[in-house]
Amino acid sequence: MTPPTREGPEQAADDEASGPAHGTTVLSTVGPLEVRLGGGSERATAWISGEILLDNADQLLEVLSQAVLAGRAGLDLDTTAVTFTDSSGLNALLELRLRALESGHLLTLRPGARMGRLLDLTGTRDLFPPSSAGTIPDAGQHHGS
């Protein structure tokens, strides 16, 4: 399955950071979703690409929860390559935030245009501090079947 194409300013902004994510590990590929993990010893970074749906939101939550609890100070999420998120995907991110806070870890978020709009519409943007990881490489396009 090929993700919907992105056009306009959102695509141009996302393309500036595109390229292979060197030094990352693919944690999960479920349907139209891919998660890569990388980062230093203090903080991990997870690059999420594709669609976050009812079919994969629970697995995304579990994979990212393990990354949060891996002993680092926190997790920076880059969702600039996420092309669609339904309510179950938003709920997974909100639950991940709670798990991080309960365990003393900081979860930050670098939303793309679509994720940012969802956060704005639902009034949840302020729950996720912006990522301080700087320029984060795009996880690349998902190669689904």
Rank of each mutant, 00 (worst) to 15 (best):
L33K: 07
S131K: 11
G89L: 09
G134E: 11
I52R: 10
G112C: 04
A100D: 06
L121T: 01
L107E: 03
D55Y: 12
A113Q: 09
P130K: 12
T83V: 10
A67S: 07
L37E: 04
A44S: 05
G50H: 09
M115T: 08
G38C: 10
A113F: 07
L60P: 08
G104V: 01
G39Q: 01
P130W: 11
A70E: 12
A73L: 02
M115I: 14
T135C: 06
R114Q: 05
I48G: 10
E42T: 07
S65D: 00
S28L: 15
R125Q: 09
T79Y: 05
L69W: 05
G104T: 02
A100G: 06
E42M: 08
L109R: 06
A81D: 08
A70H: 01
L37A: 05
A67N: 02
S65Y: 02
T108V: 14
A70P: 04
G112R: 03
A67M: 05
R97S: 00
G38R: 06
A46L: 13
N56C: 07
F84A: 12
S41G: 02
G39L: 07
F84M: 12
P129I: 14
G23P: 11
L54E: 13
L118E: 01
S28Q: 08
T24G: 11
P137D: 11
R36K: 12
D78A: 06
V82L: 04
D76Y: 00
E51M: 12
P137E: 07
D86K: 05
D76I: 02
R97M: 01
W47S: 10
T25E: 15
T83F: 03
L94K: 13
V30H: 04
Q59W: 00
T124N: 02
G38E: 00
T83I: 03
R114F: 00
G104I: 00
P32Y: 13
T25F: 13
A81G: 09
T45K: 10
I48M: 14
D55E: 15
G134C: 06
L90K: 13
P32N: 15
R72E: 02
L106S: 13
